[in-house]
Simulated assay, not measured.
Amino acid sequence: MQRVPVGSGHLFFRQGDITTLACDAVVNAANSRLAGGGGVDGAIHRAAGIADLRRACEAIIAEIGSLPPGRAVLTPGFDLPARYIIHTVGPVWRGGKDNEPALLRDAYLNSLRLAHDNDIRTIAFPAISCGVYGYPVEAAARIALTALREGLEAGLVAEAGMVLHGAAAHATWADAAEEVL
């Protein structure tokens, strides 16, 4: 695992499975209905306990209708090693003409703000929008790392990081970190 000091905190990168990470909160790259699905979203639902997490997500959706891109909500972590799950919806890539960069930045920053508001000090993110939502990985990495840097410099959390699936993804994000940090 790589750790880089940023502000009074640290930014980390690691390759692996976000569902096994013991930290205050993991971030779920959710869909707008918080309904589970494939990729990270499905893995988090399975590891947390599908029935418990589904009930918590359904209660949120009953109250708000749907979760728009860039926003974030909180549930318990249930069976995960993490105490909480922060669910955020990243934008679907449509060529960059539908405000996708700002929405992706908001997904990271609003997750960090929600963490701060709930006394969460350590948080781990997946590569939001980089799977089936089709966001170009290199561009997403720069946006995400800039947002994480801003959040750490503002003292929103003590430690924030990326948990990446596979060596190629890890290398892409490490390269982006050299540019952004």
Score class of each variant (00 low, 15 high):
97 K>T: 14
87 H>Y: 09
104 L>M: 03
102 A>M: 06
129 S>P: 06
118 N>E: 08
128 I>E: 00
112 L>V: 07
113 R>S: 08
55 R>V: 11
111 S>K: 02
82 A>V: 05
44 I>R: 12
46 R>K: 14
77 G>H: 06
100 E>R: 02
64 I>Q: 12
62 A>K: 15
126 P>G: 08
47 A>W: 07
63 E>D: 15
103 L>R: 13
128 I>R: 00
101 P>Y: 04
65 G>I: 10
45 H>T: 07
115 A>S: 04
115 A>R: 01
72 A>H: 07
106 D>S: 13
77 G>P: 05
119 D>N: 14
53 L>R: 01
77 G>I: 05
86 I>D: 13
100 E>I: 01
80 L>M: 05
97 K>A: 13
57 C>T: 04
64 I>A: 07
80 L>E: 08
114 L>C: 04
86 I>F: 10
93 W>P: 12
59 A>S: 14
87 H>A: 11
81 P>Y: 09
53 L>W: 00
59 A>L: 06
89 V>G: 08
70 G>A: 10
74 L>M: 13
48 A>M: 12
96 G>I: 04
70 G>F: 08
48 A>D: 13
84 Y>C: 03
75 T>A: 13
102 A>E: 14
55 R>K: 15
119 D>V: 01
110 N>D: 09
77 G>M: 07
107 A>R: 05
118 N>D: 07
99 N>G: 14
59 A>T: 06
86 I>M: 11
127 A>L: 06
126 P>H: 05
101 P>C: 04
47 A>P: 09
88 T>A: 03
59 A>M: 03
49 G>L: 09
61 I>T: 08
104 L>P: 01
102 A>V: 06
95 G>D: 09
101 P>S: 05
128 I>L: 01
113 R>K: 14
75 T>D: 12
79 D>W: 00
71 R>N: 13
51 A>S: 15
51 A>P: 09
81 P>I: 08
84 Y>L: 01
42 G>H: 10
128 I>G: 01
106 D>Q: 14
119 D>P: 00
91 P>C: 02
89 V>E: 07
78 F>V: 02
108 Y>N: 11
94 R>K: 15
86 I>A: 11
102 A>S: 11
93 W>H: 10
84 Y>I: 01
121 R>H: 13
109 L>G: 06
76 P>H: 03
113 R>G: 05
84 Y>W: 14
109 L>Q: 12
69 P>W: 00
119 D>E: 14
45 H>S: 08
108 Y>F: 15
